[in-house]
């Protein structure tokens, strides 16, 4: 059997590739990586907001701004509280000089908003450089060293939770205080809420009391029509909340 140099090289390259490819499918994990992979499978962060308990004090917003170093006077924020209802948008029971019976002022309540840490996050999908990404435990993070500041993620978020950080000039948003929750602490807003209106949950832990509420009581999410699978659950939501 004769073998030209061309054939030899061809077959040698082919053979090497064929033998290398299956091997490259296996990677060696360091012990830390292995532990992280297993442990993270047991965590899926979620959030529960009880709108019946919120009094609209705004301490959560203040705590968030302090904790995450968002300039206090800048009109951007990682979390905010919306005031809903009243009657026809009025905030006082005296309308056009006429006093209204308090019974007619229904549905006046507060809705705290924050990032929904979607399971199908459009912001991650549209980031051209992968600077915003989803962790294994479900939280969407932003890499401040890699974000180019194009604003596509801000446009893609149906909830309007993203903004440009006034100091760092990159996209920014709530991350459930990832630096705190991964160390077993509560997010700053949860910590500061005196009424238990905001609570953090690990959906993979069946014994988590907040997870129990989410799985056994009637909760709703915001704007599910966008298919983003949001993970901030609300008690006492109304159709007017958007």
């Amino acid at each position: 059997m004769s073998c030209s140099r061309r054939d030899f090289l061809k077959q040698a390259c082919g053979g090497t590739l064929a033998s290398v490819l299956p091997v490259s499918a296996f990677t060696f994990l360091s012990p830390e990586e292995a532990r992280a992979a297993v442990e993270n499978a047991n965590v899926r962060w979620a959030f529960l907001v009880d709108t019946r308990k919120c009094v609209g004090c705004g301490l959560c917003v203040k705590a968030c701004k302090n904790e995450n170093e968002i300039p206090y006077d800048a009109p951007v924020t990682r979390t905010w509280v919306e005031r809903m209802g009243g009657r026809d948008g009025f905030i006082d029971n005296v309308i056009n000089g006429e006093e209204i019976d308090p019974d007619n002022i229904a549905k006046a309540f507060f809705v705290p908003k924050l990032c929904n840490q979607c399971d199908n996050p459009p912001c991650v999908q549209v980031c051209p450089v992968g600077a915003t990404y989803q962790t294994d435990d479900g939280v969407v993070l932003v890499d401040r060293d890699w974000c180019i500041g194009c604003g596509y993620c801000i446009m893609a978020c149906p909830y309007g939770v993203r903004f440009f950080h006034p100091v760092h000039k990159v996209a920014d948003k709530c991350n459930f205080c990832y630096h705190r929750i991964t160390k077993g602490m509560n997010p700053a807003c949860v910590e500061s809420c005196a009424f238990d209106a905001r609570r953090i949950a690990n959906l993979r832990d069946p014994d988590d009391p907040v997870t129990k509420i989410i799985t056994t009581e009637r909760v709703a999410v915001l704007k599910d029509e966008y298919g983003t699978k949001p993970h901030v659950f609300y008690i006492g939501l109304d159709e007017n909340v958007r």
Binding site: P128, W146, G151, K169
Partner: peptide, 14 residues
């Protein structure tokens, strides 16, 4: 917002 990182979409496209 970060014009100096303009080449990133070419170098590390997502």
């Amino acid at each position: 917002q970060q014009p100096l990182r303009a080449m990133e979409p070419l170098l590390t496209p997502h």
